[in-house]
Design a protein around this nucleic acid. Sequence first.
DNA 1: TTGTATGCGTTATCAC
DNA 2: GTGATAACGCATACAA
Lengths: 341, 341
Amino acid sequence: MTDRFETTIHDIARKLNISASTVSRALNNNPIISEATRQKIRQTAEEMGYRPNTLAASFRTKRTNTIGVIVPLINRHFFSSVISGIEEVAYKSGFTVTISQSNDQFEKEAKIAHTLFTNRVDGIIISIAMETRQFDHLKLFSAKNIPLVFFDRVVDEIDAHKIVADDFGGAYFVTKHLIEQGAKQIAHIGGPLNLKIYENRQAGYVKALEDAGIKLNHSMIINNTLRREEGTEAIQTLLKDNNTIDAVFCANDTTALSSIIYLKSIGKKIPEDILVMGFSNEPFSEVVTPSISTVQQPGFLMGQKAASLLIEQITNKSENHEFLTIVMPTDLIIRESSVRK
Amino acid sequence: MTDRFETTIHDIARKLNISASTVSRALNNNPIISEATRQKIRQTAEEMGYRPNTLAASFRTKRTNTIGVIVPLINRHFFSSVISGIEEVAYKSGFTVTISQSNDQFEKEAKIAHTLFTNRVDGIIISIAMETRQFDHLKLFSAKNIPLVFFDRVVDEIDAHKIVADDFGGAYFVTKHLIEQGAKQIAHIGGPLNLKIYENRQAGYVKALEDAGIKLNHSMIINNTLRREEGTEAIQTLLKDNNTIDAVFCANDTTALSSIIYLKSIGKKIPEDILVMGFSNEPFSEVVTPSISTVQQPGFLMGQKAASLLIEQITNKSENHEFLTIVMPTDLIIRESSVRK
DNA sequence: TTGTATGCGTTATCAC
DNA sequence: GTGATAACGCATACAA
């Protein structure tokens, strides 16, 4: 009910018999204003219950102090870690963060991008949807010089800062570990190869086999979108085609889990009969039986880095066109599912 | 580089030799404009690459078409389900959703609330932090007639629509189920009682015992903030004080899990020696061994309901001051951890 | 150090 | 059905 009456800088100015611009400057800590008047202004602003109209300010300055974040799913531990990292940095710099999820759908992603664009976010941070193979909705931003930072699932053909985990290295060491455990027939359940991260994970797997002198068998690789049921189907197919498989490297923990569940259901023992490893270290991986060996990505750090690079771009509209691709190290997490007893 | 030049309704008007107001009306589908001119305007707007300046519009109309959502953690399955429900409804109604997480900290929650307030969101949907016991930061919104909807962790002393799951009923049936499985000494690891949901879960437990003629033993109830380590500590204490316990009802799945892990570590078998049940149906509960019996809350539906109630309030600034508290039904999910073999 | 004047792009209120 | 005009609250270029 105490509605309708918002005090403005003009109200404050009138009350103090000074000009609105002085009030504006004081409230924005413009050093040109004397300490005395600044104090006075801040105090009466407080007394009058003044709250700045960010809408008016944004409209005037063309800056919203808002960062848009688009992720496939906020529900995944990795993505929510990244978001937390982004939030931390953004808050400290006075930016608001708008989070949206594409549900891995191209349509939704494109719609979100347009909305953020129309809402004039100052910049966006994105990990693209599995379905996304076409990037006009993102080129919008480059076209208007709105900074864009990719993380995790990056797009080659757009110039921008990119933060990725060392997918290649992680996958390489996973495979190497499996080989060291005595595995000879290592299968791979991989993601869609239009996404660089899955391409890299697969490449790491291939390279490790190569380095160990193990011949690559293409029938031991299956690519899908790594959902739970797809993991079950994939492991079934793999076993049918190659019943000598003694290890499986899955490109995420979800398919590692469904593989384990299926393998257990047909009487295979893990790790005794087949070693299994995943990727991403989802929370469940630690607590299932057997616990799942996996690769930890530094999500929080990646988020922090992405946000600070973005904010730097927003703040210094520097014509510094050197775009970085930062590869963050991953950690191998060895648990029960990959250690031969 | 194609920066700086944004076409405005004035540019369109000039090109068409009509007035800006006509353009504005046409673009907003004001029915008063003739179909012919509307067509013409829309087309040239398209051709000129016009994008509406929502900032200016929001500034003018004092409506941002933005809904703020504050949750403790986006990382929890329940909360991300609610968020998805909110998003779905909001998008359909043309609202943008800004999501923030309080990390269950009062300070962070208050800061977020102020930011949303200053950013003039049209309404907010919130589930409060565990630490929150004081509500000035939320009363701000009521004071300015900004609609507010609570879900899950609601606040009694603020009048608003509230969407909750049937915590009492869920807990009642959990306890009843444990009793039916033959349990006589049922312990409870509960949440902080300043939160209504945990009070209700505890009340459901108490009522079920009472209805079954089992005397309540206060030393079999421990309240904490339900983090993993706290679950471990709680079950330890419970066993020390009452070594005849044959079942534990935990107010969330996290503590159910840590209880199970601890119990297994000291050689207790579940469900043979002790039955365990949780609450919320986290994804891991289905896949751990033993799988955890729990209560499913309709998160997505709760989100949809919360959003539609909020949007209704925003749209009809109706002076209809009947605030609803909607209790959504929960489902008992029986798995291995609670079924005596 | 402070004040004056102006305009950001849109919508709302009149008038025609 | 359309047009002219004012106003939203703020930040800034310029003047003093």
